[in-house]
Design a protein around this nucleic acid. Structure first.
Lengths: 117, 117
DNA sequence: AAAGGTACTTTCTGATTAGATACTATTATT
DNA sequence: AATAATAGTATCTAATCAGAAAGTACCTTT
């Protein structure tokens, strides 16, 4: 096959890629899914998203924040309180995440797998 | 934060994860997008999906085939001809990929980025 | 003075994903 | 006999992603 130009991370010309770069990855989908039901604190998110480490949770939240999908609200209290919620741009993704979840659930049922949501 | 169990690849209980494990990754979205417009041969796909190497193209196609999203049809000819198309299950994803592409395109426009599709 | 609660950060390590580059097989064509 | 076309494979390396485990910072309660 002839040689083709390589594309760099977040330097694409394809809308599908652009979207996957922003909401793909191991935890982002689930995170948006949980936030779609309402504002959550850091620790609450950590408990809902099984298998994520604090480091990854922070990292993923920062990326989503940077991409304008998640809003971070810090309360100047002790002990600290930080709440996360979807921005309008993030909320636009909800129907789509729901569709995806429906598809996944249906396939899981067909394959006889248990599904937690 | 307390310790949490880790989940293994493709061993999840969350529908959103399940779905992302199947259609996430660097090239799968674009691939499904292109196949949604009709059957394509290996080389045609390779030319449309800029930046993919033959190795990755084969790998991604095999994974999608294994997950029942893509059908592979080999013609016993020389030079060889292999055609790829979406299965019914894969087609169920199309509206969703389109939604995602729309979202991405809108965001790209807002950011002043050029978009090839 | 010690422990506890919350939201992280840091460092080191391991796993996964992706890439470059070259090679294979088959037959028709030149 | 060399070339071309198609659909890949093989091997090695590089980049990215993710994880474990421990540490930080702050104030309150015991």
């Amino acid at each position: 096959m002839e040689k083709r130009e390589k594309i760099n991370h977040r330097d694409t010309v394809c809308a599908v890629d652009y979207a996957f770069q922003r909401i793909g990855g191991k935890h982002k989908g689930r995170l948006i899914y949980h936030l779609s039901k309402g504002t959550l604190r850091y620790g609450e998110l950590g408990r809902r998203i099984t298998g994520i480490t604090p480091k990854m949770l922070t990292q993923v939240l920062r990326e989503l924040e940077e991409d304008g999908l998640v809003k971070r609200h810090v309360y100047l209290e002790v002990p600290p309180r930080v709440e996360y919620s979807l921005t309008p741009s993030g909320m636009e993704l909800v129907p789509f995440i729901v569709l995806l979840a429906d598809w996944g659930r249906a396939k899981m049922n067909k394959e006889g797998l248990a599904c937690e949501n």
